[in-house]
């Protein structure tokens, strides 16, 4: 399997094409779809009655038994997935044209998930929040809707701050029935209230998944000497001796990641950490395999 590097995928302007490439790369493994929804399912035969639609007539049975039977189906519904994308300024990092930013990476992953869901015949919705205003598309299926979602994503320029709690709650409201709420963010804004809201959403029957996107410098902190760091969201500046502070920083980030993962697992949410230096289709594939395993009741709990 050829692995697309983050920079290669990020260089593809056509978001649909990039999403398709990622999904095809992620699908190449032998795993079942993680988003199996509800398709039309055969229920039983019953004797044909005048007025029945001939398209439901079982012609094969007629040929074998010379009797008229109509096929009956059980009413089914499709899965709805609401994608919550963090478009705050903190996602615009690293601000380097040669490196994939967190937002671009998150947009690619979100697009790939939308593509995947729609290509399975399910519904996908999208929501983000910028400058206190929501931008969303309700969950629907079909190619035209997928293109609308992708166009929406590709138009977003990360800026300002956002409220993860509000976005999650609003996204859950947009799901008319039970569905999957998938949040792609760095979760720097996550607070106790955020996890509380997630639990509330999950109690309403939704499946909540957290995809935490972080870049390599944020985790490894490869800086040295005196550096003035500027907060992308608040604009606050702070000069520190980066070399001397590196250990403390890494420790803080490690604790934060551990807390995010622990909170997610404790509440039964899916959680995956995605580093922007990992090929997106590989990260997505790894996540989907784990999700499939988690959804399979035959999989031992320890393996999840």
């Amino acid at each position: 399997m050829s692995v697309l590097t983050p920079s290669t995928v990020a260089a593809i302007d056509d978001l649909e094409l990039a999403a398709r490439l990622i999904v095809e790369g992620a699908r190449s493994g032998s795993h079942r779809s993680p988003f199996h929804g509800f398709t039309a399912e055969f229920s039983q035969h019953r004797p044909y009655r005048p007025g029945d639609d001939l398209k439901y007539l079982d012609w094969k049975l007629l040929g074998r038994t010379d009797r008229l039977y109509s096929r009956q189906f059980r009413e089914t519904t499709s899965l709805s997935v609401m994608l919550v994308l963090d478009a705050s300024a903190s996602m615009q990092f690293p601000d380097d044209p040669d490196v994939v930013s967190k937002f671009r990476y998150a947009a690619l992953v979100t697009s790939a998930l939308a593509y995947l869901v729609v290509s399975q015949g399910d519904s996908v919705g999208f929501i983000t929040m910028q400058d206190g205003r929501f931008s969303y598309l309700p969950a629907r299926g079909g190619r035209p809707h997928l293109r609308a979602v992708l166009a929406n994503i590709s138009r977003i320029e990360p800026r300002g701050a956002w409220s993860l709690d509000l976005a999650l709650t609003r996204g859950a409201d947009l799901l008319k029935r039970r569905g999957v709420l998938l949040a792609v963010s760095d979760f720097y804004d996550a607070t106790d209230a955020t996890f509380r809201d997630m639990r509330r959403v999950a109690r309403r029957g939704h499946d909540v998944a957290l995809l935490q996107v972080l870049s390599k410098p944020e985790i490894d902190f490869p800086y040295d000497a005196s550096i003035e760091f500027e907060d992308l969201e608040s604009g606050e500046r702070r000069v520190i001796d980066a070399g001397a502070s590196a250990r403390e920083y890494r420790s803080g980030v490690g604790s934060f990641l551990t807390r995010c993962r622990r909170e997610a697992h404790r509440d039964g949410h899916d959680y995956a950490l995605m580093r922007t230096d990992t090929a997106p289709e590989r990260a997505l594939r790894s996540y989907l395999i784990r999700r499939t395993g988690a959804a399979d009741p035959t999989t031992p709990r320890e393996a999840r």
Binding site: S226, I227, E228
Partner: peptide
Amino acid sequence: RRPARRIPFPTLRFLPATRLAP
């Protein structure tokens, strides 16, 4: 005066405020 690099960073929550380069 020795110049300091300025780097936009996602969050300062993990950066200690007291460590200044001498």
